Simulated assay, not measured.
Amino acid sequence: MAAITRLVRRTVSISNLASRCLSPHLPRKDPADRKVQWVFLGCPGVGKGTYASRLCDLLGVPHIATGDLVRQELASSGPLSAQLSEIVNQGKLVSDEIIISLLSKRLADGEAKGESGFILDGFPRTINQAEILDGVTDIDLVVNLKIREDVLIEKCLGRRICSQCGTNFNVASINIKGENGSPGISMAPLLPPAHCMTKLITRADDTEVVVKERLRIYKEMSQPVEGYYDNQGKLLEFELPGGIPESWPKLLQALNLDDYEPKQSVAA
């Protein structure tokens, strides 16, 4: 995919204190010209898939998650299907080479169809993956979603799945008061409809011990990747100030898209 105009030349940061920025926003650009090639990073459970998919809907670009690419290949009769099936059945990790192969094909197919960009969700996760990705396509911006660890743990422990329809919900009602100069944070639960309420189940790995270990491993892996993109001047660190109602408008503001959604709504 052809390289696009660089949208960011420095790291910027959005504070969750008093809803103000600590650094300048991204340069303002006509939304119609935004051919984004972005990456969304963040701890498990932070909501990167939710925010990435919302932005994709807003900007008219595809939301690409490498896990989805693997599942799609497994369900197909493609050249890697048998190899992936063997790897998954043995409980092994899918190699970087296979992931990049699937991603390269997806990006090439998108370019052939006239897609104007993409948002990658949760990839790359290692320096090696980031370096390989740089040889495949140009990444213009890396959005690193962050949230307080105590809030993230409570959020992960509140996750529920309807055993019948497979929809994800969250029963955690988070309301932590600010103290010692740190702001408070509130997140309303995402409750299921009545017909799903009695069918909720908890993921086997959503225990406090497992969640904390998952976060520890992620931090070890993610810090070098964050530094890699920070050194390239592409990293935007965004601290979530609350749930979607509080965070979404501030994320749009950080991306200089805060005047875009109303126009889109009027046009619709």
Score class of each variant (00 low, 15 high):
Tyr260Met: 12
Asp138His: 13
Leu191Tyr: 05
Gly166Met: 00
Asp30Pro: 09
Thr202Glu: 12
Ser85Glu: 14
Gln90Asp: 11
Cys196Val: 12
Ile201Ala: 13
Asn175Trp: 02
Val61Cys: 05
Pro192Lys: 06
Arg71Phe: 09
Cys165Glu: 00
Leu74Ile: 10
Ala52Ile: 09
Ser81Gln: 13
Phe40Asp: 04
Asn128Glu: 13
Ile99Gly: 02
Ser19Cys: 02
Thr137Cys: 14
Gly45Tyr: 01
Asp258Ser: 14
Gly243Pro: 00
Val88Cys: 02
Ser265Trp: 13
Leu191Asp: 10
Thr137Pro: 08
Gln164Gly: 05
Ile14Met: 13
Glu115Gly: 11
Pro241Glu: 07
Phe123Ala: 03
Glu97Cys: 07
Met221Asp: 02
Pro262Val: 14
Gly122Ser: 09
Ile176Val: 15
Leu107Ser: 08
Arg106Phe: 11
Met1Tyr: 00
Ile132Gly: 05
Ser104Lys: 14
Ser247Glu: 01
Leu22Ile: 07
Asp109Glu: 15
His63Arg: 10
Leu255Arg: 03
Ser13Phe: 04
Pro192Cys: 08
Asp33Ile: 05
Pro44Arg: 06
Leu74Trp: 08
Ser76Glu: 00
Pro224Ala: 11
Val36His: 07
Gly243Ala: 04
Val94Ile: 12
Ile244Trp: 08
Gln72Ala: 15
Arg148Tyr: 13
Ser222Pro: 01
Ile147Cys: 15
Gly122Cys: 07
Ser182Ala: 15
Ser85Cys: 05
Ala112Met: 11
Asn128Leu: 12
Trp38Ile: 10
Phe40Glu: 06
Thr50Cys: 04
Glu213Ser: 11
Leu26Arg: 05
Ala254Val: 00
Ala3Lys: 04
Pro62Gln: 06
Pro62Leu: 10
Leu191Gln: 11
Leu120Trp: 00
Gly47Asp: 06
Leu120Glu: 06
Gln223Arg: 12
Gly45Trp: 00
Asp109Trp: 11
Met1Asp: 05
Val266Cys: 13
Leu251Phe: 01
Asn128Thr: 12
Val136Phe: 03
Pro245Thr: 09
Val225Leu: 04
Gly47Cys: 06
Ala52Pro: 02
Trp38Met: 04
Leu55His: 01
Ser116Ile: 12
Ile98Gly: 03
Asn168Met: 04
Val12Tyr: 04
Trp248Ser: 01
Leu7Arg: 12
Lys234Tyr: 12
Phe238Arg: 04
Gly181Ile: 11
Leu41Asn: 02
Gln37Asn: 13
Ala52Ser: 15
Leu102Cys: 08
Glu261Trp: 05
Val142Cys: 14
Glu97Trp: 06
Leu120Ala: 10
Gly135Leu: 10
Leu55Arg: 02
Gly166Pro: 01
Val46His: 03
Leu255Gly: 10
Gly227Tyr: 06
Ile244Asn: 00
Gln129Tyr: 03
Glu179Asn: 10
Glu239Val: 08
Gly135Asn: 13
Arg106Ile: 00
Thr198Leu: 10
Cys196Gln: 01
Leu22Arg: 11
Ser222His: 04
Ala188Cys: 06
Arg9Phe: 05
